[in-house]
């Protein structure tokens, strides 16, 4: 005999069960889900689901709204609808953030620029550039305005057809003059060094920028060491042996177990010997 639901399974009861499940299960889940921690653990979908729930409960909370928009940029599967929802949320955050809430307004504008620059399947570079410039104009001195300067430098140096490397270097140098946050200044110095070296093969112009970036210091693992080797290599090509030896040795002391270290020590000794032999 086929299974026949009894009165307990009638439609009204099933609807009640569904409502309770929708209310209770996410709540039980959220009790142990920190969406920010989930995101830091690269569990973006869990983070996004929880932020969506929090945003639905309190749409006026700009922090949740901004974080939810950010999570939509990485939620899987990536869809145009997610991107569109993120954009709408960020536009609303910008509108609702009061004059005193510069952080949310700046972050919303920054993310809108980033969406145009790198999240659309076909980048809208002019729209991105306009947002970055608006951010720099409206929030001078804000760390995100300085980060926008780094993205403008990437646009100028590598995404502006018809611009020569010399023109690009001049534009990036002008941006550098207006940026104060050390993290952004470091990146701009690196971009300038990279551009001079890789696109102009001008070690003399590149070296001061690599040195300036290294002096500020990089935050990602190993990058200071790689910068030391680049500086030493370029200094060697320019005949600046003392500088080369200094950075080779800095690397060797910081990374004694790197497979390159014995060679680096030998190159440092050779540079020192040339320095000693110089008239």
């Amino acid at each position: 005999m086929p299974f026949t639901p009894g009165p307990i399974f009638n439609r009204g009861f099933r609807r009640w069960l569904l409502v309770m499940a929708a209310v209770l299960l996410p709540a039980a889940h959220s009790a142990e889900t920190d969406p920010w921690q989930a995101a830091l653990n690269l569990d973006y979908n869990t983070a996004s689901a929880e932020l969506a729930r929090r945003h639905a409960l309190d749409p006026a909370d700009l922090r949740n709204a901004t974080a939810y928009a950010a999570s939509l940029l990485v939620r899987q599967p990536r869809t145009a609808a997610n991107l569109s929802e993120a954009r709408d949320l960020l536009v609303r955050v910008r509108q609702r953030a009061g004059p005193a809430d510069a952080d949310h307004r700046a972050l919303a504008l920054y993310l809108l620029a980033r969406i145009e620059h790198d999240h659309e399947s076909t980048p809208r570079l002019e729209a991105a550039r306009a947002h970055y410039e608006e951010l720099r104009r409206d929030h001078p001195g804000h760390p995100l305005a300085d980060q926008a300067g780094v993205h403008l430098a990437l646009l100028a140096g590598w995404q502006s057809p018809g611009v020569t490397p010399e023109q690009a270097a001049a534009r990036i140098a002008a941006l550098l003059d207006t940026v104060t946050a050390p993290a952004a200044r470091r990146e701009l110095h690196h971009l300038l060094g990279f551009l001079h070296w890789h696109r102009r093969q001008d070690a003399a112009a590149a070296l001061p920028h690599f040195l300036a970036g290294r002096a500020i210091g990089y935050e990602t693992p190993y990058r200071n060491g790689e910068a030391d080797l680049t500086i030493a290599g370029l200094a060697t090509e320019l005949g600046r042996d003392q500088l080369a030896a200094q950075h080779y040795l800095t690397f060797a002391e910081a990374y004694p177990r790197d497979a390159r270290t014995q060679t680096v020590r030998r190159l440092a000794a050779e540079a020192r010997a040339r320095t000693a032999a110089a008239p």
């Binding site: 995101a39 973006y44 950010a70 940029l73 990485v74 952080d103 790198d118």
Partner: peptide, 15 residues
Amino acid sequence: DVQRLDAMAALQLTL
């Protein structure tokens, strides 16, 4: 990665 890092940086800024 570039896209992912946008979300990472923004989520950290909303901590």
